[in-house]
């Protein structure tokens, strides 16, 4: 196969799974991150403790180990799931732990005066968070969230190791059948770069747009 044919073949078979895993895991991570981050700021010690355990366990062990654990060990406890579900769950939980730290420090970085002003205006706690604090915190979180999205995207390549048929998996299959090793792995690197690079640029642009005239 020519280099071009290899790229087309890889894309045709693996791109959808790679992107699907990225999007689903990113959504899960963002949701978990916001819930975790807010819970970490709770006044209730127990809630804070629970989140701390979640964060430290998922940050303290390796993503690949978590992926294997969810895919190979959970079925022993009767929790059988597809490779895609396991992948989304592992990556989402892992990045959710990191995201919750980003959310927490973002919220904490909003000036104390904003809280005081909202109390003075008699906002409820929820209104204060939703209307005043989080919109400001979000802008400060953006650079970190952007970086994490890129890292998350790259980490989806790990799902090939639990037989999910993403780009990396298809490259291995193609390598075994055609033996065009150099071209295949070069093509694979190029494909990842061509997706990740515009993502990096796009996040930078979004950051600039959001901060324009506000910071």
């Amino acid at each position: 196969m020519s280099f071009w044919e290899l790229i087309v073949s890889l894309l045709g078979q693996g791109l959808v799974i790679t992107l699907l895993t990225t999007v689903l895991a990113a959504i899960l991570a963002l949701v978990l991150g916001f819930i975790g981050g807010l819970m970490r700021l709770s006044k209730n010690k127990f809630i804070r403790f629970i989140v701390a355990i979640y964060v430290e366990v998922f940050r303290g062990t390796s993503l690949l180990v978590q992926l294997f654990w969810i895919y190979f060990v959970l079925p022993m406890f009767g929790l059988r799931m597809s490779a895609l579900t396991a992948a989304v769950l592992a990556i989402g939980l892992n990045y959710g732990a990191y995201t919750s730290e980003v959310v927490r420090s973002g919220i904490q970085s909003v000036d104390e005066g904003q809280t005081e002003a909202s109390i003075a205006l008699n906002f409820t706690r929820v209104q204060r968070m939703r209307r005043i604090i989080i919109p400001q915190a979000f802008i400060m979180m953006l650079p970190n969230l952007g970086n994490q999205l890129i890292e998350l995207f790259k980490s989806t390549s790990l799902v090939a190791l639990i037989t999910l048929t993403d780009l990396t998996y298809q490259a291995n299959v193609l390598n075994a059948t055609t033996l065009q090793t150099t071209q295949i792995f070069t093509a694979l690197l190029v494909i990842y770069f061509v997706i990740a690079w515009p993502m990096t640029k796009g996040m930078k642009m979004l950051e600039r747009k959001m901060t324009e005239g506000r910071m």
Partner: peptide, 23 residues
């Protein structure tokens, strides 16, 4: 640096381990 940063470590490992021997 940008290229290395924007591609997965796993794929880079494959590249080093499987492509370098071709040369």
């Amino acid at each position: 640096v940008k290229f290395i940063r924007n591609t997965p470590l796993l794929v880079q490992l494959y590249f080093i381990f499987y492509v370098f021997p071709q040369f």
